[in-house]
Amino acid sequence: MKRWWPAVGLFFLAPFVGEFLLGNQPITNLAQIFLFAPMYGGGAVLIRESAQRFGLGWTGIVLMAVAYGLLEEGPIDQMLFNPAYVGLDSFAGLAEVPGIGSLTLLQSTITLHTIWSICVPIALVEACASRELWLGRGGFAAVSIIFVLGSTLLGLMQAAGFHFVASPAQFAGSAVVIVGLVVLAFALGRRTHRPVHGPVPQPLIVGLVGFGVTSVFWLESVLLPDGLGSEWISVAWWFVLFGVATVVVLRWARRREWSPRHTLALATGALLTYVWAGFAHARDMDDTSLTVALLGNAVFALVAIAVAVLAWRRLGSQTLV
């Protein structure tokens, strides 16, 4: 066995960030983390261990995280196929593309799961642990089985609960895209780039950039005007926002001066966005009182901040500068 405790930590941190810190689940449902962990946590652990085992780096992690997001909200939850999923009928007709559905919903799915469900938890746990493999072959196989069984169970529960099953073409199309992203992750992740010299901002600046970009994403509905084809303005804005951010971060990350502290700073900035966004999201819970929802998210926020502080301490730094 390898150092398996970081894998256990990631197994539970991924659903904690993805569901509870976001405000999707109240603190009274905390026990459901064991229901979500096989899918969220299993996916995050498999992605991290695959990237480490095959030398895919963060390029591979990000691409596999996109694939995970499409898998969860496509074949498993079927949210991308069912416009009426949990009241998401508001997405119906928004930037609708035949054969794809709502681009607005697709962009939100990719963003939330890529950044917060997978990449942020991996960066936080990696800062607390060594960067070697955490699991041996047996552990990797066990997590794979847990991921498949847990995801299948959730998929069956969702199909039965919403009385909705996507068409064979939708399942097949999404499978092709998901497999293609995984293949791309292995193809691009294995490519080596010679590091170049160049200025890299202090980790504090990188963290502020991460916080700023992800906060602007959440504030998009406030910043952009209504009407005049606003859904297509939103789609274009998403491409500009994350396109520019991706180019800038990739430019920094390929320089010799980029360090694990910069990676952790970027993840910390995104995590803090979920801290404030979770409070806004928690206010919309229908089956939980506002007091319980906000108190629960206060507890979740404190836990998230404590994890970030622990990550910085384990990385050997007390500050962001």
Rank of each mutant, 00 (worst) to 15 (best):
N82C: 13
F211A: 03
L71W: 07
I115W: 05
I145M: 15
L22E: 02
L94R: 15
G155Y: 13
P75Q: 05
D284Q: 06
Q52K: 14
L80G: 08
P38F: 04
G296P: 01
I118E: 00
A236Y: 11
A37S: 11
W276E: 02
S174G: 07
A159C: 07
D287T: 12
S234L: 05
G101K: 04
R131Q: 06
V249K: 00
T273Y: 08
A306P: 07
G99T: 10
V206G: 03
R261G: 06
L310G: 11
A159I: 14
F20K: 02
G42F: 04
P201T: 12
L264Y: 14
V309D: 11
W218K: 07
A95G: 02
A304H: 11
L295R: 01
T59H: 09
M157K: 14
Y274T: 05
L204P: 03
G207C: 08
L250R: 13
E220Y: 04
S289D: 15
R191M: 14
N24M: 04
L154A: 01
S234D: 07
I145V: 15
T28Y: 06
S50W: 13
V275H: 00
I205W: 15
R191A: 14
G227H: 12
Q52I: 07
L46T: 05
G23L: 02
L224Q: 08
W238I: 03
A187I: 14
F217W: 05
V62C: 08
F36A: 05
S174N: 08
D77F: 12
A129H: 01
Q170E: 14
L10Y: 06
G243R: 12
P26L: 10
L22N: 04
V213K: 02
L56G: 10
T114I: 00
F171S: 05
V17I: 15
V182F: 10
V309L: 15
V235R: 01
I146A: 15
M64A: 13
A31V: 13
I146N: 01
M285P: 09
E257Y: 06
C119Y: 02
P6F: 06
F36C: 04
A298T: 15
S50D: 08
G138I: 03
L181C: 09
G55C: 09
L135D: 03
M157Y: 08
R255E: 05
G87L: 09
V66P: 01
L153V: 14
S230R: 02
V303A: 13
V222R: 13
F162C: 02
H163M: 00
V143Q: 02
G227Q: 12
D89K: 11
W312R: 08
S174T: 11
V292Y: 04
H281G: 00
K2E: 14
S230F: 14
G99I: 08
L295E: 09
Q318A: 13
G18H: 00
W58P: 03
F300H: 06
V209P: 02
F81C: 09
L228Y: 14
V213L: 07
C119Q: 00
E19S: 00
H281V: 04
L124F: 03
G69D: 06
G243H: 10
S259E: 12
S130K: 13
G161W: 04
S221V: 08
L156A: 13
S90A: 11
A141V: 08
S317A: 15
G42N: 04
V209L: 04
H197L: 07
A14V: 07
E73D: 11
G69R: 06
L154P: 03
V299D: 01
T263I: 06
